[in-house]
Design a protein around this nucleic acid. Structure first.
Length: 262
DNA sequence: CTAGATGTTAAGGT
DNA sequence: CACCTTAACATCTA
């Protein structure tokens, strides 16, 4: 789930549900996800505070505690947040549970414990420490081209490298390569400048569409490959069977007709 | 039972 | 060096 569009949807969800409510209880059921902080640090930063603001960078969500600190959430492959009232609606693998004074709760779920929970005084410093590149939805066209044009790695691997550009994961890397018509194993430095420009515009468009659809795959346009990322998937452009290969150890879907190697 | 799943990252290679 | 690729991580499911 959580690539840039998913985390952006989480951000808007937190904005709509969980701001300006005093936190009256905090339960942490696994310390494994804590990053560089103790459970006391976490409690001190949250208890009797309330969320006042949010910020997303790549796949990371920062939530301001109305003081000097930010709660940092990273979701790994299976994480999400949920705001709810009845205990029966609590997600099965809740790792952090906050209770608000209004008797609603806020859960951070993570089935596989891949992901991070942290506290930072400076989100800029945290972003630097994680070695994250510019956010994929905020980078300019010229910076995008400067950063990518002489990379020797494969297009898909490079797009997924969070230290170059932050936010693109396995699923959306496939969509971007598909929309631009690039074989995912093409070397980035083999792309002409106009193709890099196309890549930039396709990336932005795909993320805008995904966020507008609230990442609900059923609402994605028919021209997208993401809903067809299934066994026996068919190319939405030419209805030929999609192929799968491994890139970066990850399953990669592409159309051998529209995405030729160059 | 094995393989694979949206995440990162340490270690090794070029 | 800077850059690139691979294997490993934790847990659950098909």
């Amino acid at each position: 789930m959580p690539e840039l569009p998913d985390v952006e949807v989480f951000k808007r969800y937190v904005d709509a549900t969980s701001l300006h409510k005093k936190i009256s209880d905090i339960r942490l059921s696994s310390k494994k996800m804590l990053d560089q902080i103790s459970s006391n640090d976490l409690r001190d930063a949250l208890l009797n505070h309330s969320f006042s603001d949010t910020f997303r960078h790549g796949k990371y969500l920062f939530i301001h505690n109305d003081d000097e600190q930010w709660l940092v959430l990273h979701f790994g492959m299976t994480g999400f947040v949920k705001y709810f009232k009845d205990t029966q609606d609590q997600p099965s693998h809740t790792r952090l549970l906050l209770s608000f004074k209004n008797s609603y709760h806020f859960a951070v779920h993570s089935q596989r414990l891949l992901g991070k929970i942290s506290i930072t005084d400076s989100k800029q410093e945290y972003i630097q420490r994680q070695d994250l590149g510019d956010d994929a939805l905020r980078i300019s066209l010229s910076d995008f081209i400067d950063l990518l044009h002489d990379r020797r790695g494969m297009v898909k691997s490079t797009l997924m490298n969070q230290s170059i550009i932050a936010g693109i994961g396995n699923i959306y890397a496939d969509e971007i390569c598909f929309q631009t018509g690039i074989h995912p194993k093409t070397k980035m430095n083999h792309l002409e400048k106009n193709v890099l420009e196309q890549l930039y515009h396709d990336m932005n468009h795909i993320f805008d569409v995904a966020v507008d659809a609230k990442v609900n795959v059923e609402q994605f346009p028919d021209s997208f490959i993401i809903p067809k990322r299934l066994k026996n998937g068919i190319c939405p452009k030419c209805e030929q069977p999609l192929r799968t290969i491994k890139v970066n150890n990850r399953t990669t879907y592409f159309c051998p007709v529209h995405q030729q190697k160059r």
